[in-house]
Write a protein that binds this DNA or RNA. Structure first.
Length: 448
RNA sequence: GAUGAUGUAGCGCAGCUGGUUAGCGCAUCGGCCUGUCAAGCCGGGGGUCGCGGGUUCAAGUCCCGUCUUCAUCGCCA
């Protein structure tokens, strides 16, 4: 007599299936009905499994139920035999195998008489608002799944690459005492009997951790209370952050980022080959790094396209598009780094260029016309922080828990942040970053 | 917040200078089709044209107000 139930630790939890080795063998699978096509003699049921859709074939009279009565999005368990096949549909994988079904159990069916939109076609015919409102349904579409499979791969391989290169993953708090940059664009919340904020960046914490590990990275959500309303902004997004001690200045950061992106894109190409094909993605080729100084590229854009932004202290969206166009046409590169941003546009921790304090040793990375990264060298001496913050009219006392880092001594260091949704959107050719977010948060949308 | 669009069936859309009973595709329902390729063929049902006023013999269509969504900009990743 005992109350304990003991489970076998050896049970197989891997859902990957080696189809060639199963040819002509009996299998049992549970999945959801992605689509069902009904010729007179039976049915092709496209079954959605954890990572792909497989084709199953049913012949009338040979199984226990009429396949025509199974609604799309039902969950079914099938028993059948793996057969050779030749399938043209890119949304189905594997395309050289199918399952000849001999038994079906229906585990659940949708409770609605009809689904609110059709997910069985090549594309979802719906506007952005409808897509997001019906997110639990729209995310079941193969092309939507492909976007987030690729996004997950970018996220994972960013971590893998950095881990392999001596970086330590950190998880900094998202509930913070004050906004990283001290701006007003942060979400306020109640923290017991006082106020706290949602972190707009892991900036302070990743710098603190450079003192401990030298090289750190973090992948996690950040929150921006800005009332921006554009196709490239979210109020909550996933930031992929790096911070590291530097031996060769900001160019070392550019090299680390480029190598990380190259590694990530190679992994996407190999591990997400089906998704890349389904979405028709042309993968970027990265073999050299192209950098331009902020002032120089403005001159080039003026000379080349006649657009004069030379007086502006930042890059506007049209300029970013033109710069990417120029670099693509001239060097066939999808990536470009713009360095030496004006000090006035950078935060207090940015390191001014010793040769010209009006410029910083910082950079942005543009990918196919959109800014995906900001990074740069940081101040690393306590006195420099105090001087610079006072010059900017900041209250040094409020930042003491952060500034202690520099009192204890810090190496020259720098870092960068990459927007996951932006990289995903640009890679997948999405016209709005919100489409690269599972459940986007913008000025109007808080659910689902 | 500014500017410009937008709102017609569950979804995506058409609907001309105002004029019969508001259409098309998908979905849905019924029937047909011997291997489909995000199927194909035939038929049925489904709409207070965002909301509120106004002009007119007559408004989806014109005017005013209001809300929604989308795009662009500011800011940023």
């Amino acid at each position: 007599m005992t109350d304990v139930k003991i489970l076998d630790i050896q049970s197989n939890i891997d859902s990957h299936i080696d189809w060639p080795s199963l040819m002509d063998k009996e299998v049992e699978l549970t999945g959801m009905v992605q689509n069902i096509r009904l010729p007179k003699w039976g049915a092709f049921i496209i079954l959605r499994l954890s990572n792909y859709n497989i084709q199953t074939v049913v012949e009338n009279g040979k199984i226990n139920i009429d396949p025509a009565t199974i609604p799309v999005e039902s969950t079914i368990r099938i028993k059948g035999t793996v057969r050779q096949s030749q399938i043209k549909d890119l949304a189905i994988f594997p395309r050289n195998a199918e399952i000849q079904v001999n038994h079906i159990d229906i585990l659940s069916v949708p409770s609605l008489p009809a689904l609110p939109l059709d997910t069985t076609k090549k594309d979802i015919e719906a506007g952005l608002d409808t897509k997001f409102t019906l997110r639990p349904l729209t995310l079941r579409h193969p092309k939507q799944r492909a976007i987030f499979k690729i996004s997950a791969t970018i996220f994972n391989e960013f971590g893998n690459f950095l881990t392999q290169n001596g970086f330590t993953r950190i998880c900094s708090p998202k509930i913070v005492f004050s906004g990283a940059e001290g701006g007003a664009n942060i979400f306020k919340l109640e923290y017991f009997d006082r106020n706290a904020y949602l972190a707009q960046s892991p900036q302070f914490y990743k710098q603190m951790m450079v003192g401990a590990f030298g090289r750190v990275f973090e992948t996690g959500p950040v929150f921006r209370a800005e009332k921006h309303d554009t196709s490239r902004h979210l109020n909550e997004y996933v930031s992929m952050d790096i911070e590291m001690a530097l031996q060769n200045g900001y160019e070392e950061l550019i090299q680390v980022e480029t190598n990380a992106l190259k590694y990530i894109f190679d992994k996407v190409a190999s591990d997400c080959a089906n998704e890349v094909a389904l979405l028709g993605i042309e993968m970027p080729v990265i073999d050299k790094i192209y950098t331009f100084r902020f002032n120089d590229i403005k001159q080039i854009i003026f000379d080349k396209y006649g657009k004069d932004y030379r007086g502006e202290k930042d890059l506007c969206p049209e300029e970013e598009a033109l710069i990417s166009q120029y670099v693509k046409e001239t060097y066939n590169s999808d990536l470009v780094f713009i360095t030496h941003y004006p000090t006035i546009k950078r935060p207090f921790y940015a390191m001014p260029d010793p040769a010209n304090p009006d410029e910083t040793l910082s950079f942005d990375c543009l990918f196919r016309g959109l800014e995906i990264t900001t990074g740069g060298e940081r101040l690393y001496k306590y006195d420099d922080y105090v001087t610079n913050m006072k010059k900017r009219g900041m209250n040094v006392d409020l930042f003491q828990s952060y500034l202690q880092t520099f009192q204890y001594g810090m190496p020259p260091h720098g870092g960068l942040g990459i927007g996951l949704e932006r990289v995903t959107a640009q890679l997948c050719g999405l016209s709005n970053v919100k489409e690269a977010s599972l459940f986007p948060r913008d000025i109007n949308r808080l659910e689902p």
